[in-house]
Write a protein that binds this DNA or RNA. Structure first.
Lengths: 288, 288
DNA sequence: CGAGTTATTGATCGCGATCAACATGGGTGG
DNA sequence: CCACCCATGTTGATCGCGATCAATAACTCG
């Protein structure tokens, strides 16, 4: 309820070695230390104003919390929008007598649940799966941001659309497919999402969660998850050790998981926006 | 930078227990032949203008299609937003060699996929599960509607938030829980959603799909779905026959499925909007 | 009336859950 | 610094639910 330390520092850091600094290049890099802004920049052509405003929001209030600690729990009234800056989080629905079921994974640069802007109570618990750094954006601030910068609103709305599409794939993945295939498909999704924010490359990525948490997202027990990863290791497809996942054979992994990244809709929006003469406008009247 | 039209009229609607017939009551009934409008009216205080505009959109272009026919298929470029007027539809993701997996169910009054407004290609196929009547709303029309009537935009955005929450529950339902429990929980969801649009009551509701389709949504085979319904029938919990589901023991059904309707967020928004002094405004700049 | 779809019941089988045991390792407190 | 503890990882053995295969009934629609 209080580990909130204020940060005023606003994107002073253009750490990248720029020799001849020109404005256009500068504006496209403002706030790029934030994964979210880099990702949104792929969705919509954000200008210097949008980037600055977003960076301002992301810098205002930070929290660092430990693995296993909930950001907000089922039934609570949401106040802030959380954006993951570093570490992994998950949304979970109660599982009765069983362990709670993970229904969404929040990686660096993800908005945890855009719906909190309007929800009166949470329909899931958001919990840290690793040591986690998040920015808390108040409803007031978020409202002002989306009001003043329609492009930001468009990009954020797009984020929520993609989150919905991802959940669709989760349903399909967990319903059909054997354990190996689920794990493979899920790994492909994670790799792709991390790649977009610069946290994965051909060699692999950091995977700072437990096998139990991983399995939970695929609807598998920790024991069976372990077996699957052992087998994948034996087949030289992936290797997971000490919080690092090594991609040994991406093509095999993709084939095994029948992975097709199109449901993630990366890059879609910008092209769409450029093609379409209309704008999407979603607004709400002020309730006095 | 400001596709935001302000709403001056502030919640005229005090529909609760009005004795005489006055304008507010009249305006609250315009377009009520449409399930969607009745539902949205529970989300946001729609006035006569909003209702008329929505009704206009829903009346412009209709399609009636047969069971099994897709409205739009995976990969296609979406043009229109579909709103179910009558019958049932589903969104399905490809299932490899298996049957495609249903990831969303669209009941009368549902917006099939709000994301089509921005998506460049479909991430799922939308298919009719029964004889289906849908309204097609063009992007242009939808954009104009949300631009001119922020309250409509708010309510529609809310629809998309709820759709995402529903998918979360689907993930949890299909991951944990035995077949009986899944079916029971799913039936409760359907009953509740239909109830909101006036298509279910204490006795039951029409269930115009096949057992195979029902099972698919729960991640079960048609054979096993059949067995589950036989057992539920034996236990006098529900009876499904000739396209009609009879609720014999709602409490038992709810207990069996551990059903808690709060994830559907019915009624939430109105209260939220009335409580909160801020408005949510999401907009996008016109792309020249 | 025949053809195809849907519902229904039976028999079998296999994947992954469950239970159990042990290894490992990081962290804490004495 | 060591002893201990608890979370996590790892492997084995067993079991049961629901998939799969199979066959028939009921029903729809040309």
């Amino acid at each position: 309820m209080r580990p909130i330390s204020l940060m005023k520092r606003i994107s002073v850091m253009l750490t990248t070695s720029l020799t001849g600094i020109d404005m256009s290049l500068t504006s496209a890099t403002i706030g790029n230390q934030f994964h979210l802004i880099r990702k949104l920049g792929q969705y919509a052509p954000l200008g210097v104003d949008e980037r600055s405003a977003l960076a301002n929001c992301l810098s205002s209030r930070l929290q660092v919390i430990d693995r296993g600690v909930p950001l907000i729990e089922l039934g609570e009234a949401p106040i802030d929008v959380f954006v993951v800056l570093d570490g992994w989080a998950a949304s979970q629905r109660p599982g009765g007598d069983k362990r709670d079921q993970t229904v969404s994974l929040h990686l660096p640069g993800d908005v945890c649940d855009f719906g909190v802007l309007m929800k009166r109570h949470m329909d899931c618990t958001i919990i840290a799966l690793s040591r986690l750094k998040v920015a808390s954006i108040s409803r007031t601030m978020a409202t002002k941001l989306t009001h003043d910068y329609p492009l930001c609103a468009q990009a954020l709305f797009w984020e929520s659309i993609c989150a919905n599409a991802v959940r669709g794939q989760w349903i399909a993945r967990n319903a059909k497919g054997a354990a190996r295939e689920r794990v493979a498909n899920f790994l492909c999704e994670i790799a792709t999402r991390l790649f977009v924010v610069g946290l994965a490359d051909d060699s692999g990525f950091d995977l700072p969660i437990t096998q139990a948490d991983f399995g939970n997202a695929c609807g598998l027990t920790s024991e069976h998850t372990n077996r699957v990863f052992r087998d994948l290791r034996m087949d030289n497809i992936v290797s997971w050790k000490d919080g690092r996942l090594d991609l040994l054979n991406w093509d095999a992994l993709r084939a095994l998981g029948s992975f097709d990244a199109s449901y993630l809709h990366f890059r879609d929006l910008r092209q769409s926006a450029l093609e379409s003469p209309q704008s999407l406008v979603i607004g709400a009247a002020v309730q006095a």
